[in-house]
Design a protein around this nucleic acid. Sequence first.
RNA 1: GGGUGUGUAGCUCAGUUGGUCAGAGCGCUGUCCUCACACGACAGAGGUCAGAGGUUCGAGCCCUCUCACGCCCACCA
Length: 878
Amino acid sequence: MGKPEMPKAYEAKLYEDAIYEAWEKSGFFNPDKLKGEPFTIMMPPPNVTGILHLGHALENTLMDSMIRYQRMRGRKALLVPGTDHAAVPTQARVEKMLMEEGMRFPRQELGREKLVERIRAFADASRETILSQIKKMGTSCDWSRLAYTFDEARNKAVNELFTRMYHDGLIYRGYRVVNWSVKGQCTCSDDELEYVDRKAKLYTFKYSADVPFTIASTRPETKLGDTAVAVHPTDERYKDFVGKTFEVNFCGVPLRLHVIADEHVDPAFGTGALGVTPAHSAVDFAMYEKQKAMGNDIGIIPVIGADGKMTAQAGKDFAGLTSEEARENVVAQLRAAGLLVQEEEIEQNVGTSDRFGDVVEAIPMTQWWLDVQKPIPGRGKSLRDLMRDALTTGLSGDEKQRVTINPERFVKLYLDRVEHLRDWCLSRQIWWGHRVPVWYKGEEMVVGQIPEGDGWVQDEDTLDTWFSSGSWTFSTLGWPEQTDDLQTFHPTSWMQMGYEILYLWLMRMVLMSAYALDEIPFHEVYIHGMVQDKNGRKFSKSLNNGIDPIDIIEKYSADALRFSVVTGVSPGNDSRFYEEKVEAAQRLVNKLWNISRFILTSVETVSHGRAFKELKPSTLADRWILSRLTRLEEDVAAHMGAAEFSQASEKLREFTWNDFADWYLEISKAQRVDPKIKASTDAILVYVLEHLLTYWHPIMPFVTEQIWKYLDDQELLIAHAWPVMRLIDLDLDAEAEMARLQEVIGAMRNIRSQYSVAPKQKISVVLVGGNEVESHRAVIESLAGVESLTFETQSPKDENASVVVGQTQIFVSLGGLVDHEKELAKSKAQAKELEKYIRSLTSKLENEEFTSKAPEQVVATMEHNLAEAKGKLEKLCT
RNA sequence: GGGUGUGUAGCUCAGUUGGUCAGAGCGCUGUCCUCACACGACAGAGGUCAGAGGUUCGAGCCCUCUCACGCCCACCA
């Protein structure tokens, strides 16, 4: 190929879109074109609630780096893209927008169909944006398999799952206390609550003058629905009352209070008596059920309705009041009657709806539930058992059916959560989502699909959005059909997600997959932390600190963004994002560009694709860089394989900038006056460059692909096989010799710098005992700016600045510039250091316990270092 | 209340099973627009690896405790 015209700086904007298009056209995003063992990643589908943020940039980089690496390693690599309809968040978002536009009650004003249409329009637009953003980031996913949690295919999977679970008796309809968002008019699962601390008043009072119990509550208005008083079974104070019933008049409302014993009650708290409100407390409801199971129906009286207001059952004084109003009223009455014993301010932890934002009410309702504890017919295990097995023994004890999590500590969190898992409330009262596949006609109920005949009405509720995303790893592959994809790609290989959805999503995917397929959803999970802003704060609308990844891509490059979000980041830990990081990354991208530019324009012929054996390393530097490259490949492959992206990119940066650019390229310049050396070096330059581009490609796909074009205008880098160097021996001699040479050059440069010798001014140097670098005269002269380099056996007589490196004494002639005091001080300091070093080494080596117990290699290195240090000290003193 | 994470150069963070390696980027200081790159080159300063004990021949890495900050969970009404 001819000499390419490469601009001085890499301008990503000019190339990225075209490159992505070329990749897409090439067909390599689709595994059907690939051979080898399958390697599958399912993209965690972003919510269609808006645009992508930096967390998605991180996720896309992780997934894409992994999938590109695996593809280059010859795997049949599949990354399935998709989006999530995100039921509650999306509906909440659109309703909020409508209300901002002036609508007061979107649901009532538009009705189900029209509101769903509005949400769909919003979601579709949002989805388009998201998909284009994914492309901007360079994600190499298979667009032919694009999925959406709310499309036809996924609806089939959801209905099938629901139906099977129902017939297995796992899904049931039950009247129980739920978390109710009054604002959203919708249930929330336990996982959808966000707990916030707030101040509250704790009231201590008696129901009436003639009951012996004093109770406490922050919600005295709910006490209108009390049906029992609970005490600890061993509490002597109340022992005689258990089993009795008290008729009381509480603020004008007649209550029948059963005295029950329950282990849950802490006898040391307050008076040890707890007012039981089955309708408005999950704990109390549990007591109610327990009593009922023992034949003691204490009753349940809902006094707060779905609208958040007091019900008729709360009594005519209170019906229709808000709970705050009712509370004031109750407290006032108690106070007037002299029943109020105490009021105190306390810190309280309340659950709020993560999407609607209001404090949720506990209200009893009929909802659909998933039983996680009941044995699955024919399998003898509950869903909870399966979830546990998948992380511990493997499903059915099969080690291959075991999910591993990186970092491992999340396994414990997961398992703890599994043990405390309660039944999952599946039904939601919003309209955006998969509708519960149940139809009613009178007393009849049919689950699965709409029966023949007229008069069937479908359940009004929709399903929790996680019910559909739980099946993501296999619904995307065509389940419930037994497709080839399902055969080939499931269980998936690798999954990455943020720790914030460990409970919400990871657990549900394991549950669904284990239930439906008796398979784990993925073999390995990589947990990443949250991307925060420069000050360690969350990105949020209220702080207005949001950063659009697309803006960053446009200002710098997708590669720089990708590099900056994974570098210096470890799994499970949060990271901070700030532009300086991207700037640094962009400098690296540009450096790689200029390295390439130099090579491609300075070598005689660009002949890529040579075998290692064809290379004719003729100099130390040649041997050294090839050894370093071999080492690099080993390191990068090991790190990429282990999903250690940060370490992989650090190694690559180090090699690229230090070894290759600062040393090898500079040396190659110094040596190219010799045509024979230049020929062999040219070949090596190109060889290293093409390897380096390959190794960089998973992390920085665009710039590497663009440069690759100048090397090879036929094949795309995306499809290039990862060149394994592992079988080539490291050249340890060359590495050691080169290290010495680098030290010698560094020492000379140091002297130049100390005496402020201008770069253009050449220096004269005498080396004593520098035999081992004698053959590298040209390199030393060029890189250290030396014009006269002589090798002697005796120290020169005239004035010099000097320094000792290894076995070599370096004397730089500086004429009258030499500062004797400075030189003396310098060597004294150096001698002192050395003596200290020698002492510490000697004491260790004289310690027999050390020499006998430490590995040979460690001892040998120390002995070597000691000898060297001694020699150095000797030279220094002459 | 329980659990868990973090604390390493001025800043942001790496540090893979304990072994001469205390590192990177940014920032800072000094010198240079040297024919790939000033988005650059060269040199340099800067750390008792939060603190105290312990295990070990050897600890930033393991154990115990303390301090600081963060996160998650929990039915103290």
